[in-house]
Design a binder for these strands. Structure first.
Length: 244
DNA sequence: GGATGTTTACGGGTGT
DNA sequence: ACACCCGTAAACATCC
C-alpha cells in the first residue's frame, strides 16, 4: 500500500481529532510550543479541509485547548512580544493515544486537583517573572518580591532533577535548545526512542545577552518538557500521516 | 475591535 | 445500556 502524502486528504476531513492535530502542531515546533495563530497555520497549511469554515473549527480548537489538561498555556516570554500565550503539551499526556487511534483517545488526560494547582502556581510564577521583567524594561521601580530561582520549583515532572543535564551552558549563559526534530513528524515516529545521533551538533545560541531570571526559569521549564518527552517510551501503531 | 481564552451545554458517536 | 470522548455552538471575559 503506497504511503499517502500529507496532502492526500484533499478537501476531505482528515481522520484526526482536534486534539491530535493540535498535538502534532505543537510537536512539530522546535521548542514544542506554539501560539494559537501558529497552530491554526500548521493545520491550514497541511489540511485544505480546514481552510473553510474557519470560525467553526477554530472555536472548537480553542475549546479543546482550554478544556483539556493535556494542553498547557505558557506565558509568552517578554522578549517575544505578541498576542496570546504559547501552548504546549503536558509531559504526562504523551500516552493519550496509545490505543493507536488519533480520532478517539483511550482515555481523557486529566490532572488531579493538586497537580493542577501546582501547575497553576508555576505558570503564575512565570507570568510574575514576565510582569517584573516588563516593568523593569519600562523603567518602573522594582516590583515587590520577584520570585527567586529557588522559589520557582517546577512540579510538573517530579521525576526530573531540578537542573536538567540537557540544558547546555556555555560561558555562563544558558541557551535554548533550538534543534529541529530529525524524525518524520508523526505522533508515533516522534515519540519513538531517539535514533543514534552522529555527530552531535553544537547548540545554537539564540540570545547574546545576560539572561534575566525570567528567561532562565522559562528555559528550564521548556527543557523539562523536552526531557520528559524524551524519557517516555510509549508504544504506538503506525499511521499514514507524514508531515516533514 | 479583533484575537485569544474560558466555560457551559448538548447531541452524536464509540468502546466496553 | 452506559460511560465518556468528540465536535459544535454560544456567551462571556480578557488581552493587545
Amino acid at each position: 500500500m503506497p504511503r499517502p502524502s500529507r496532502e492526500s486528504y484533499g478537501d476531505q476531513k482528515p481522520p484526526y481529532s482536534y486534539i491530535s492535530l493540535t498535538a502534532m502542531a505543537i510537536w512539530s515546533s522546535p521548542e514544542r510550543m506554539l501560539p494559537l495563530s501558529e497552530i491554526y497555520r500548521f493545520i491550514t497549511d497541511r489540511f485544505p479541509y480546514y481552510r473553510r469554515n474557519t470560525q467553526r473549527w477554530q472555536n472548537s480548537l480553542r475549546h479543546n485547548l482550554s478544556f483539556n489538561d493535556c494542553f498547557v498555556k505558557v506565558p509568552r516570554r517578554p522578549d517575544r512580544p505578541g498576542k496570546g500565550a504559547y501552548w504546549t503539551l503536558h509531559p504526562q499526556a504523551f500516552d493519550m493515544f496509545e490505543n493507536g487511534s488519533l480520532l478517539r483517545r483511550r482515555k481523557r488526560f486529566k490532572l488531579q486537583k493538586g497537580e493542577k494547582d501546582n501547575l497553576s502556581a508555576e505558570l503564575a510564577a512565570l507570568a510574575s517573572f514576565n510582569r517584573a521583567f516588563l516593568a523593569r524594561q519600562a523603567g518602573a521601580p522594582p516590583p515587590p518580591a520577584i520570585p527567586s530561582a529557588s522559589l520557582y520549583t517546577p512540579t510538573m515532572c517530579p521525576q526530573l532533577s531540578p537542573e536538567p543535564a540537557e540544558l547546555p551552558e556555555v560561558g555562563g549563559m544558558t541557551m535554548l535548545v533550538r534543534e529541529r526534530p530529525r524524525r518524520a513528524f508523526t505522533i508515533e515516529a516522534l515519540l519513538e526512542p531517539e535514533p543514534p545521533r552522529s555527530p552531535p551538533s553544537p547548540p545554537q545560541p539564540v540570545m547574546a545577552m545576560t539572561l534575566p531570571p525570567y528567561v532562565m526559569a522559562a528555559q528550564r521549564y521548556h527543557a523539562e518538557l523536552l526531557a520528559a518527552a524524551h524519557a517516555l517510551r510509549p508504544c504506538y501503531i503506525p499511521h499514514p500521516l507524514s508531515v516533514a
